[in-house]
Computed example of a mutant assay.
Amino acid sequence: MGDSLRIGVLHGDGIGPEIVPAATTVVSTALGRNEIDVEWVDLPFGAAAIESHGTPAPDETLRALDGLDAWILGPHDSAGYPAEFAGQLTPGAVIRKRYNLFANLRPSRALAADRAMSPGIDLLIVRENSEGLYADRNMATGSGEFMPTPDVALAVGVVTRAASERIAREAFTWARRRRGKLTIVHKANVLTMTTGLFRDACLDVGRDFPDVEVSQQHVDAMAAHLVRRAADFDVVVTENLFGDILSDLAAELAGSLGTAASINCSSEKAMAQAAHGAAPDIAGRGIANPTAMIGSAAMLLAWLAQRSGDERIFAAAGAIDAALAATVAAGVSTADLGGAASTAEFAQAVAERV
């Protein structure tokens, strides 16, 4: 990568055009202080792309992503798109499938202890991102949901050993980097074959990581344990649907879904994408919390650093994380965390601390 990065910018819908620039401001500052230039490549995406190109994920955007180091993806409001796009893959899903971004990494850490229901929480949920019960991910063509009659709806859930082992290896690798503990979450007492296969594949991979302490929980028990003792968990690996639900719960325990950072990645490509949605009800008001988007961008830099071995990018990612924590600790936050800062004011405060 040398002394420069080319990172795509897809602003998205709703609050996207507010929180994505907040993230790029902070990232530019952090990389600049570590003597790395960044070229931001704006690409059409979402509702604006429907107006300009007739589709939310234009071919020119997808082709451009091929040549970029990584990209930042704003939230999309596909429910608000014209009726002709109903039932189609969301634009984020189009990108995720194109690049086989099989891992969704969602950390939860309390930034403002007085606003967190679990002040000691510091965990990473590693979510399998390519199959399961999600209809946009489990079929080569068509949808994984279908209705044989108007009053009967069926869904196909897909769990494969290959995908389960792949996400397990990712999770064990992260556990080794963190505190050396990994919890496998499943529902094998009821979904014996599907989530049982997921559990067994994870346990098999664990034999290659004897230094990692392994435990397992049923998903319903795990939800209760997170509420009662979230600080006891380090890395959690689970399938798609369970990971989606548990990560939102963990984010609220940490203070707000607005702080929920996330990246979707493979071994070759990654995109920063906050765990929350487009929040069209507050779009344009300058009150959206950009913490999740900024944190997602920091995770993206850490992923790029691991891939390249460039310590300067690691330093930039670490500086952003530290600046986020210091900013909130200083009493600067958006309204959802009890503060009065606007989206842009919060981003500027973080950039100054970088």
Results as ranks from 00 to 15, higher is better:
residue 35 E to M: 07
residue 168 A to W: 03
residue 280 P to M: 02
residue 292 A to P: 01
residue 214 V to Y: 07
residue 205 V to L: 03
residue 343 T to Y: 07
residue 353 R to D: 10
residue 237 V to K: 01
residue 97 K to Q: 14
residue 110 A to V: 06
residue 249 L to W: 00
residue 266 S to Y: 00
residue 157 G to K: 15
residue 215 S to W: 10
residue 142 G to N: 06
residue 227 V to S: 12
residue 337 L to G: 09
residue 61 T to E: 09
residue 149 T to S: 11
residue 295 G to H: 02
residue 59 D to Y: 00
residue 344 A to C: 07
residue 130 S to P: 01
residue 168 A to C: 06
residue 348 Q to T: 15
residue 161 R to P: 06
residue 126 V to F: 01
residue 144 G to H: 07
residue 207 R to M: 11
residue 245 I to Q: 06
residue 156 V to S: 10
residue 90 T to M: 02
residue 349 A to L: 08
residue 12 G to A: 10
residue 276 H to Y: 06
residue 234 D to Q: 03
residue 13 D to W: 05
residue 328 V to P: 00
residue 19 I to R: 13
residue 279 A to N: 07
residue 284 G to F: 04
residue 215 S to P: 09
residue 84 E to R: 15
residue 114 D to A: 13
residue 167 I to G: 06
residue 341 A to F: 05
residue 212 V to F: 08
residue 314 F to E: 14
residue 168 A to E: 02
residue 306 Q to N: 12
residue 81 Y to V: 01
residue 108 S to H: 12
residue 309 G to F: 02
residue 85 F to M: 04
residue 241 L to A: 15
residue 52 S to Y: 04
residue 57 A to K: 06
residue 217 Q to E: 15
residue 198 F to I: 04
residue 13 D to A: 09
residue 320 I to H: 11
residue 308 S to M: 03
residue 35 E to G: 07
residue 31 L to Y: 04
residue 54 G to R: 05
residue 155 A to V: 08
